[in-house]
Amino acid sequence: MLAATAIAVIRQHSLFAIVMLFGIYSLLSASIFVVLDAVDVAFTEAAVGAGISTMLMLGTLVITGHHERTPKHGPVLPLVVVMLTGAVLVWGTLDMPPFGAADNPVHQHVAPRYIEDSPQEVGIPNMVTSVLASYRAYDTMGEVIVVFAALVGVLALIGIREQKSPRPVSTTDDKPPRPVLQVMAKLLIPYIMIFALYVQFHGEYGPGGGFQAGVIFASAIILYVLTFGLDDAYALVAPSVLRPLAALGVLLYGGTGVVTMLMGGTFLNYSVLADDPVQGQLYGIIAIEFGVGLTVATVMMLIFYAFISRGEKAA
Protein backbone atom coordinates (compact mmCIF):
# COMPACT_ATOMS: atom_id res chain seq x y z
CA MET A 1 0.00 0.00 0.00
CA LEU A 2 2.84 2.34 0.84
CA ALA A 3 4.51 1.49 -2.41
CA ALA A 4 1.29 2.18 -4.29
CA THR A 5 0.94 5.56 -2.62
CA ALA A 6 4.52 6.40 -3.38
CA ILE A 7 4.05 5.57 -7.05
CA ALA A 8 0.85 7.60 -7.14
CA VAL A 9 2.82 10.53 -5.77
CA ILE A 10 5.31 10.23 -8.61
CA ARG A 11 2.68 9.88 -11.32
CA GLN A 12 0.39 12.69 -10.24
CA HIS A 13 0.65 16.12 -11.77
CA SER A 14 -1.71 18.05 -9.56
CA LEU A 15 0.45 19.18 -6.70
CA PHE A 16 -2.58 19.44 -4.48
CA ALA A 17 -3.34 15.76 -4.91
CA ILE A 18 0.30 14.94 -4.37
CA VAL A 19 0.40 16.72 -1.05
CA MET A 20 -2.75 14.93 0.07
CA LEU A 21 -1.30 11.59 -0.99
CA PHE A 22 1.83 12.46 0.90
CA GLY A 23 -0.26 12.96 4.02
CA ILE A 24 -1.76 9.51 3.51
CA TYR A 25 1.69 8.11 2.95
CA SER A 26 2.81 9.53 6.28
CA LEU A 27 -0.15 8.04 8.12
CA LEU A 28 0.52 4.67 6.54
CA SER A 29 4.15 4.74 7.52
CA ALA A 30 3.12 5.70 11.03
CA SER A 31 1.02 2.56 11.22
CA ILE A 32 3.99 0.53 10.05
CA PHE A 33 6.06 2.05 12.82
CA VAL A 34 3.44 0.84 15.29
CA VAL A 35 3.67 -2.66 13.91
CA LEU A 36 7.42 -2.46 14.37
CA ASP A 37 6.96 -1.49 18.04
CA ALA A 38 8.11 2.08 17.54
CA VAL A 39 5.15 3.81 19.12
CA ASP A 40 6.98 7.02 19.89
CA VAL A 41 8.19 7.26 16.33
CA ALA A 42 4.73 6.50 14.97
CA PHE A 43 3.26 9.23 17.12
CA THR A 44 5.79 11.74 15.85
CA GLU A 45 5.54 10.70 12.22
CA ALA A 46 1.76 11.06 12.31
CA ALA A 47 1.95 14.47 13.93
CA VAL A 48 4.77 15.76 11.77
CA GLY A 49 4.33 14.08 8.40
CA ALA A 50 0.57 14.02 8.19
CA GLY A 51 0.15 17.16 10.27
CA ILE A 52 2.78 19.86 10.17
CA SER A 53 4.53 19.03 6.88
CA THR A 54 1.28 18.61 4.97
CA MET A 55 -0.06 21.83 6.41
CA LEU A 56 3.06 23.75 5.45
CA MET A 57 3.00 22.30 1.97
CA LEU A 58 -0.60 23.38 1.52
CA GLY A 59 0.34 26.81 2.80
CA THR A 60 3.06 26.97 0.16
CA LEU A 61 0.74 25.79 -2.60
CA VAL A 62 -1.60 28.66 -1.86
CA ILE A 63 1.22 30.99 -2.83
CA THR A 64 2.89 29.08 -5.61
CA GLY A 65 -0.08 27.63 -7.46
CA HIS A 66 -0.67 23.95 -7.75
CA HIS A 67 -0.19 22.66 -11.21
CA GLU A 68 2.97 20.95 -12.33
CA ARG A 69 4.07 21.06 -15.93
CA THR A 70 5.27 17.84 -17.44
CA PRO A 71 9.03 17.64 -17.35
CA LYS A 72 10.86 18.24 -20.58
CA HIS A 73 13.98 16.18 -20.23
CA GLY A 74 14.05 12.41 -20.35
CA PRO A 75 14.15 10.37 -17.18
CA VAL A 76 17.14 8.26 -18.25
CA LEU A 77 19.95 9.76 -16.21
CA PRO A 78 17.97 9.96 -12.96
CA LEU A 79 16.81 6.39 -13.48
CA VAL A 80 20.38 5.22 -13.88
CA VAL A 81 21.46 7.03 -10.72
CA VAL A 82 18.54 5.64 -8.78
CA MET A 83 19.05 2.10 -10.05
CA LEU A 84 22.72 2.28 -9.15
CA THR A 85 22.01 3.52 -5.65
CA GLY A 86 19.32 0.90 -5.19
CA ALA A 87 21.64 -1.81 -6.41
CA VAL A 88 24.32 -0.81 -3.92
CA LEU A 89 21.73 -0.92 -1.17
CA VAL A 90 20.37 -4.30 -2.15
CA TRP A 91 23.94 -5.56 -2.37
CA GLY A 92 24.46 -4.15 1.10
CA THR A 93 21.45 -5.95 2.51
CA LEU A 94 22.77 -9.32 1.36
CA ASP A 95 25.01 -9.48 4.39
CA MET A 96 22.55 -7.84 6.73
CA PRO A 97 21.55 -9.79 9.78
CA PRO A 98 18.09 -11.41 9.35
CA PHE A 99 15.11 -9.21 10.09
CA GLY A 100 13.77 -9.48 13.61
CA ALA A 101 16.21 -12.04 15.00
CA ALA A 102 16.93 -11.35 18.65
CA ASP A 103 20.61 -12.30 18.42
CA ASN A 104 21.49 -9.64 15.82
CA PRO A 105 24.49 -7.48 16.73
CA VAL A 106 22.21 -4.46 17.09
CA HIS A 107 20.52 -6.09 20.03
CA GLN A 108 23.71 -7.36 21.65
CA HIS A 109 26.13 -4.58 22.35
CA VAL A 110 24.76 -1.24 23.50
CA ALA A 111 21.02 -1.79 23.62
CA PRO A 112 20.80 -4.36 26.46
CA ARG A 113 21.94 -1.80 28.97
CA TYR A 114 19.17 0.57 27.91
CA ILE A 115 16.64 -2.21 28.20
CA GLU A 116 17.83 -3.87 31.38
CA ASP A 117 19.27 -1.04 33.43
CA SER A 118 17.55 2.15 32.37
CA PRO A 119 14.43 1.62 34.52
CA GLN A 120 16.77 1.53 37.53
CA GLU A 121 19.49 3.96 36.42
CA VAL A 122 17.21 6.63 35.04
CA GLY A 123 14.13 5.65 36.93
CA ILE A 124 11.47 5.82 34.23
CA PRO A 125 9.82 2.96 32.37
CA ASN A 126 9.77 4.40 28.83
CA MET A 127 13.19 3.40 27.54
CA VAL A 128 12.86 5.61 24.49
CA THR A 129 12.50 8.61 26.77
CA SER A 130 15.44 7.48 28.91
CA VAL A 131 17.73 7.15 25.94
CA LEU A 132 16.44 10.31 24.31
CA ALA A 133 16.53 12.53 27.35
CA SER A 134 19.43 11.10 29.28
CA TYR A 135 21.84 8.69 27.59
CA ARG A 136 21.72 10.59 24.31
CA ALA A 137 20.42 13.88 25.66
CA TYR A 138 23.02 15.80 23.71
CA ASP A 139 21.59 14.58 20.40
CA THR A 140 18.18 15.73 21.52
CA MET A 141 19.57 19.13 22.31
CA GLY A 142 20.96 19.17 18.79
CA GLU A 143 17.49 18.32 17.54
CA VAL A 144 16.02 21.29 19.38
CA ILE A 145 18.71 23.48 17.89
CA VAL A 146 17.86 22.19 14.42
CA VAL A 147 14.24 23.24 14.97
CA PHE A 148 15.48 26.59 16.18
CA ALA A 149 17.74 26.91 13.14
CA ALA A 150 14.76 26.24 10.88
CA LEU A 151 12.93 29.07 12.59
CA VAL A 152 15.86 31.41 12.05
CA GLY A 153 15.88 30.44 8.39
CA VAL A 154 12.16 30.84 7.87
CA LEU A 155 12.14 34.21 9.63
CA ALA A 156 15.07 35.41 7.56
CA LEU A 157 13.40 34.27 4.36
CA ILE A 158 9.75 35.11 4.66
CA GLY A 159 9.42 36.89 7.98
CA ILE A 160 6.24 37.41 9.94
CA ARG A 161 3.88 40.31 9.74
CA GLU A 162 4.12 41.33 13.38
CA GLN A 163 1.05 43.52 13.71
CA LYS A 164 -2.55 42.86 13.04
CA SER A 165 -3.62 43.76 9.55
CA PRO A 166 -4.15 47.53 9.08
CA ARG A 167 -7.83 47.33 8.21
CA PRO A 168 -9.57 46.04 11.31
CA VAL A 169 -12.51 43.60 11.30
CA SER A 170 -13.35 44.24 7.66
CA THR A 171 -12.26 40.71 6.87
CA THR A 172 -15.67 39.41 7.83
CA ASP A 173 -17.15 41.00 4.72
CA ASP A 174 -15.31 38.96 2.19
CA LYS A 175 -15.19 35.73 4.16
CA PRO A 176 -18.35 33.80 4.91
CA PRO A 177 -18.82 33.26 8.61
CA ARG A 178 -18.39 29.65 9.62
CA PRO A 179 -20.37 29.28 12.83
CA VAL A 180 -20.43 25.49 12.99
CA LEU A 181 -16.71 25.23 12.39
CA GLN A 182 -15.93 27.95 14.88
CA VAL A 183 -18.01 26.40 17.63
CA MET A 184 -16.49 23.02 16.95
CA ALA A 185 -13.03 24.49 17.10
CA LYS A 186 -13.77 26.31 20.33
CA LEU A 187 -14.90 23.03 21.81
CA LEU A 188 -11.96 21.06 20.49
CA ILE A 189 -9.06 23.37 21.15
CA PRO A 190 -9.07 23.20 24.97
CA TYR A 191 -9.10 19.42 24.79
CA ILE A 192 -6.22 19.37 22.33
CA MET A 193 -4.25 21.60 24.67
CA ILE A 194 -4.97 19.42 27.68
CA PHE A 195 -3.99 16.40 25.64
CA ALA A 196 -0.74 18.16 24.75
CA LEU A 197 0.01 18.75 28.42
CA TYR A 198 -0.75 15.13 29.16
CA VAL A 199 1.63 14.00 26.42
CA GLN A 200 4.25 16.41 27.74
CA PHE A 201 4.25 15.11 31.29
CA HIS A 202 3.37 11.53 30.63
CA GLY A 203 6.25 10.93 28.25
CA GLU A 204 8.21 9.19 30.98
CA TYR A 205 5.60 6.45 31.27
CA GLY A 206 3.91 6.11 27.91
CA PRO A 207 4.72 7.20 24.40
CA GLY A 208 5.12 10.94 24.09
CA GLY A 209 7.32 13.70 25.40
CA GLY A 210 8.27 17.27 24.72
CA PHE A 211 8.46 17.07 20.98
CA GLN A 212 5.11 15.42 20.39
CA ALA A 213 3.47 17.64 22.97
CA GLY A 214 4.88 20.72 21.29
CA VAL A 215 3.56 19.67 17.92
CA ILE A 216 0.10 18.91 19.31
CA PHE A 217 -0.02 22.18 21.17
CA ALA A 218 0.98 24.05 18.05
CA SER A 219 -1.67 22.24 16.04
CA ALA A 220 -4.32 23.53 18.43
CA ILE A 221 -3.24 27.07 17.61
CA ILE A 222 -3.05 26.21 13.93
CA LEU A 223 -6.64 25.00 14.09
CA TYR A 224 -7.51 28.31 15.68
CA VAL A 225 -5.81 30.25 12.90
CA LEU A 226 -7.60 28.23 10.25
CA THR A 227 -11.03 28.81 11.72
CA PHE A 228 -10.76 32.32 13.10
CA GLY A 229 -8.11 33.89 10.93
CA LEU A 230 -4.68 35.22 11.68
CA ASP A 231 -5.75 38.43 13.40
CA ASP A 232 -7.74 36.67 16.08
CA ALA A 233 -4.88 34.26 16.62
CA TYR A 234 -2.49 37.18 17.07
CA ALA A 235 -4.80 38.51 19.75
CA LEU A 236 -4.52 35.15 21.49
CA VAL A 237 -0.75 34.63 21.12
CA ALA A 238 1.22 37.36 19.40
CA PRO A 239 4.39 36.45 17.50
CA SER A 240 6.32 38.96 19.59
CA VAL A 241 5.54 36.77 22.61
CA LEU A 242 6.46 33.53 20.87
CA ARG A 243 9.83 34.67 19.54
CA PRO A 244 11.59 35.00 22.89
CA LEU A 245 9.92 31.82 24.14
CA ALA A 246 11.47 29.85 21.29
CA ALA A 247 14.94 30.98 22.37
CA LEU A 248 14.10 30.41 26.03
CA GLY A 249 13.25 26.77 25.35
CA VAL A 250 16.70 26.25 23.87
CA LEU A 251 18.28 28.08 26.79
CA LEU A 252 16.31 26.04 29.30
CA TYR A 253 17.74 22.89 27.76
CA GLY A 254 21.26 24.25 27.52
CA GLY A 255 20.95 25.92 30.90
CA THR A 256 20.15 22.58 32.51
CA GLY A 257 23.39 21.34 31.06
CA VAL A 258 25.31 24.33 32.32
CA VAL A 259 23.87 23.86 35.80
CA THR A 260 24.98 20.23 35.85
CA MET A 261 28.43 21.44 34.83
CA LEU A 262 28.54 23.96 37.64
CA MET A 263 27.46 21.28 40.08
CA GLY A 264 30.42 19.15 39.14
CA GLY A 265 29.09 16.77 36.52
CA THR A 266 29.66 16.75 32.80
CA PHE A 267 27.25 18.60 30.52
CA LEU A 268 23.71 17.22 30.96
CA ASN A 269 24.67 14.78 33.71
CA TYR A 270 21.47 15.10 35.72
CA SER A 271 22.59 12.76 38.46
CA VAL A 272 24.29 15.65 40.23
CA LEU A 273 21.08 17.65 40.43
CA ALA A 274 19.86 15.91 43.57
CA ASP A 275 21.39 13.87 46.35
CA ASP A 276 19.79 10.78 44.94
CA PRO A 277 21.06 10.32 41.35
CA VAL A 278 17.82 8.75 40.14
CA GLN A 279 15.83 11.68 41.52
CA GLY A 280 18.28 14.01 39.81
CA GLN A 281 17.68 12.23 36.53
CA LEU A 282 13.96 12.83 36.89
CA TYR A 283 14.44 16.56 37.58
CA GLY A 284 16.74 16.89 34.60
CA ILE A 285 14.44 15.04 32.25
CA ILE A 286 11.42 17.09 33.23
CA ALA A 287 13.37 20.31 32.74
CA ILE A 288 14.73 19.47 29.31
CA GLU A 289 11.49 17.92 28.09
CA PHE A 290 9.82 21.17 29.00
CA GLY A 291 12.48 23.06 27.05
CA VAL A 292 11.88 20.81 24.06
CA GLY A 293 8.12 21.26 24.25
CA LEU A 294 8.42 25.03 24.60
CA THR A 295 10.74 25.49 21.64
CA VAL A 296 8.93 23.04 19.38
CA ALA A 297 5.48 24.47 20.08
CA THR A 298 6.54 28.09 19.64
CA VAL A 299 8.67 27.41 16.57
CA MET A 300 5.90 25.46 14.86
CA MET A 301 3.42 28.24 15.56
CA LEU A 302 5.81 30.91 14.34
CA ILE A 303 6.62 29.02 11.17
CA PHE A 304 2.94 28.54 10.52
CA TYR A 305 2.25 32.22 11.17
CA ALA A 306 5.01 33.09 8.74
CA PHE A 307 3.56 30.93 5.97
CA ILE A 308 0.01 32.18 6.48
CA SER A 309 0.93 35.85 6.73
CA ARG A 310 3.03 35.54 3.59
CA GLY A 311 0.10 33.92 1.85
CA GLU A 312 -2.22 36.75 2.85
CA LYS A 313 0.29 39.27 1.61
CA ALA A 314 0.51 37.48 -1.72
CA ALA A 315 -3.26 37.37 -2.05
Binding site: A38, D40, V41, T44, Y114, E143, V146, V147
Partner: peptide, 16 residues
Protein backbone atom coordinates in the same frame (compact mmCIF):
# COMPACT_ATOMS: atom_id res chain seq x y z
CA UNK B 1 11.55 -5.63 24.10
CA UNK B 2 12.40 -4.15 20.75
CA UNK B 3 15.53 -2.05 20.61
CA UNK B 4 14.82 1.52 21.77
CA UNK B 5 17.95 3.11 20.32
CA UNK B 6 16.85 3.24 16.65
CA UNK B 7 13.59 4.79 17.80
CA UNK B 8 15.46 7.59 19.50
CA UNK B 9 17.68 8.19 16.51
CA UNK B 10 14.72 8.32 14.17
CA UNK B 11 12.78 10.68 16.41
CA UNK B 12 15.69 13.05 16.03
CA UNK B 13 15.92 12.42 12.31
CA UNK B 14 12.20 13.08 11.77
CA UNK B 15 12.59 16.42 13.46
CA UNK B 16 15.60 17.25 11.32
Amino acid sequence: YSNPLPHVLILTAIVV
